[in-house]
């Protein structure tokens, strides 16, 4: 059974901003990797002659790493949405050709939400520290209804976890 079969309603296209997971400890911590390349068009504008990875996209990479970690902790039954950037501090530029690793840890998790702390490193050097809050949106309805299908965790996200996670949302094992 492929990831695509397991999440049958993949109508939306997802934007994947990390290349692979290096480590994945269910419910606790994960390390993902991203290679930064000059083939990313936005780097030509950010900035002309001085390409550096935009800090908001570093937050996105951490949000994907930590978001998948949080989603997997509840076996992808929740729709996990980034709800709050608790803190974001950047210490160095990330340039084309750099490989960054995203170290995320779940700090707290409850039925309605989760909080994660993360560090972005280039080799041993810490380039950013980011703290995030995620909402399990079905548990924070406030009168709103969301689609039944889990539009957050699509097959492409799932494919990143091949080899790390063998627990299917239904509980069946590969």
């Amino acid at each position: 059974m492929t990831w695509a079969c397991r999440f049958p309603c993949q109508k939306t296209m997802r934007w994947i901003w990390i290349d692979k997971f290096l480590e994945f400890e269910s419910g606790k911590r994960a390390v993902a990797l991203k290679n930064v390349t000059l083939a990313e068009e936005h780097l030509h504008d950010h900035f002309p002659g001085f390409p550096v990875m935009p800090e908001c996209l570093m937050i996105e990479a951490m949000a994907q790493t930590a978001g998948i970690l949080v989603g997997e902790a509840r076996k992808f039954q929740e729709k996990v949405i980034l709800a709050k950037i608790k803190k974001a501090a950047f210490f160095h530029y990330v340039r084309p050709g750099d490989t960054i690793t995203l170290h995320a840890e779940i700090e707290s998790i409850a039925p309605e939400a989760a909080s994660a702390e993360g560090e972005i490193r280039r080799g041993e050097q810490v380039v950013a520290r980011i703290g995030l809050m995620f909402s399990h949106i079905d548990k924070n309805l406030a009168g709103k209804r969301f689609p039944e299908e889990n539009f957050v965790f699509t097959d492409t996200f799932g494919s990143l976890l091949e080899g790390f996670v063998d627990q299917y949302p239904s509980g069946e094992r590969r």
């Binding site: 709800a83 709050k84 608790k86 700090e107 707290s108 409850a110 309605e112 939400a113 909080s115 809050m133 909402s135 924070n140 406030a142």
Partner: peptide
């Protein structure tokens, strides 16, 4: 805002080392 209430609950749990059901 609403998400801040959860953030506050998590931080209180850590600061006081207790469970705080929202």
């Amino acid at each position: 805002e609403s998400i801040d209430f959860l953030d506050i609950v998590f931080r209180l749990e850590k600061a006081f080392d207790i469970k705080v059901p929202r």
